[in-house]
């Protein structure tokens, strides 16, 4: 009987976890991917992996951070593949870094999508997930100085979208 009940408990525990954390993690995925369906696929994949190793995830110091790491790693894997393998996929939309198009000025998500994936990840983790520089660096396997540099550079690019004074200062 005990052996039969145990999986049910795990499922219920996992379901509770997903219900509590999905709004946050889905939006992390959405900011990374820039697309609702791609984000849903990404976060579902991350949760599925978390469920498959739920015993380990649930015992982690921070199961949300663990699952977020799965999610971010999956996102980065997709982009590594796209860069190196030239294999088409519609999971995410990657674009080369380029100057912001004036038409995109009011669309922060489009501006995010125009960032290189690693810079986008830095922004999302720092300013949406509110991770520290150290945690962001650890998760993205970057140095802390690299995170600072990328965050600074990205802020400069996004500043016209979020800083009303920027327009006045730069005619």
């Amino acid at each position: 009987m005990r052996g039969w009940r145990r999986p049910l408990d795990v499922t219920e525990e996992f379901e509770t976890f997903v219900r509590e954390t999905a709004p946050r993690l889905h939006r992390t995925a959405w900011l990374l991917c820039g697309d609702h369906h791609a984000a849903e696929d990404l976060v579902q994949s991350a949760y599925a992996q978390a469920f498959a190793r739920w015993r380990r995830v649930s015992r982690a110091d921070d199961p949300v951070a663990y699952t977020r790491a799965i999610l971010v790693n999956a996102f980065r894997s997709v982009h590594r593949l796209k860069r190196s393998g030239e294999i088409p996929t519609d999971v995410t939309t990657e674009r080369e870094a380029r100057p912001l198009d004036p038409d995109l000025r009011l669309d922060l998500t489009a501006a995010l999508a125009a960032l290189p994936p690693i810079d986008r990840s830095v922004v999302v983790l720092r300013y949406w997930d509110d991770l520290s520089i150290a945690d962001t660096a650890r998760l993205l396997d970057l140095s802390e100085s690299a995170v600072r540099t990328r965050a600074h550079r990205t802020l400069q690019r996004l500043r016209p979208l979020v800083d009303p004074s920027y327009e006045r200062a730069t005619p």
């Binding site: 996992f14 219900r19 609702h36 949760y47 599925a48 469920f51």
Partner: peptide, 22 residues
């Protein structure tokens, strides 16, 4: 981000299905 809708029921169902398969 908060304007982005989240279908939690769908995520729960999909995650459990894929997770069980995994």
């Amino acid at each position: 981000a908060l304007a982005e809708p989240v279908d939690v029921d769908r995520l729960v169902a999909g995650s459990l299905t894929c997770g069980r398969r995994l």
